[in-house]
Simulated scan of single mutants.
Amino acid sequence: MKRAFPVIRIMDQNGKMTDDAYTDQIDKDFARTCYRQLVCMRAFDRKVINLQRQGRIGTYPGFEGQEAAQVGSALALREDDWMFPTYRDHAASITFGKSYNILSSWNGRLEGHVPPEGKYIVPPSVPIATQLPLAAGAAMANQYKESTQAVLTYFGDGATSEGDFHEGLNFASVFQAPVVFFNQNNQYAISVPIWKQMHSETIAQKSLAYGIPGIRIDGNDIFVVYFETKKALQRARSGGGPTLIEAVTWRYGAHTTADDPTKYRDQKVENEKRRRHDPITRLALFMKEYGYWDDTWAKALEEEVKAEIDEAVKDLESMPPANVSDMYDYMFEEPTWTIEQQKEAYMNFLRGDM
Rank of each mutant, 00 (worst) to 15 (best):
I128Q: 04
P124Q: 13
L134K: 04
G112W: 09
P123K: 05
N142E: 13
I102D: 12
G112E: 10
H113F: 15
G112M: 12
E146Y: 02
S104E: 11
V126M: 13
E146C: 00
N142F: 13
L103H: 11
G108Y: 10
E111H: 12
P124E: 14
Y120Q: 08
N107S: 15
E146T: 02
E146F: 01
Q149C: 14
Q149P: 00
G112F: 08
V126A: 13
A150F: 11
Q149G: 01
T148M: 08
T148A: 10
K145D: 07
G112Q: 10
Q143S: 09
A129D: 03
L132N: 08
Q149I: 00
V122Q: 09
A136C: 02
V114M: 13
M140K: 12
S125P: 00
T148I: 04
M140A: 11
A141N: 03
K119F: 03
A141L: 05
S99Q: 07
E146P: 00
L132P: 03
V122H: 08
W106F: 15
L110T: 10
G108N: 10
I128C: 00
A138V: 08
L110P: 01
A141F: 07
I102N: 08
T148C: 03
Y100A: 05
S147Q: 09
P116N: 05
Q143P: 00
Q143A: 02
N107R: 15
L110H: 08
K145Q: 13
S105F: 07
V126D: 02
I128F: 05
P116V: 06
L134I: 07
P133F: 09
Y144L: 15
V122A: 04
V151M: 13
A135T: 04
V126S: 15
R109M: 14
T130G: 01
E117W: 12
L103W: 12
S104G: 09
P127E: 09
P115Y: 07
E111S: 12
L134V: 05
S147K: 09
Q149V: 00
K145M: 08
N107C: 14
Q143V: 01
Q149K: 14
A150P: 05
S104M: 12
A138R: 02
K119D: 04
S105A: 15
L103I: 07
Q131C: 00
P133Y: 10
R109S: 05
S147W: 07
Q149S: 13
H113W: 10
G118M: 06
Y144D: 06
G112S: 08
A129Q: 06
Y144K: 11
A138L: 01
P116D: 10
T130P: 01
L134A: 13
V126C: 06
T148P: 02
Y100T: 03
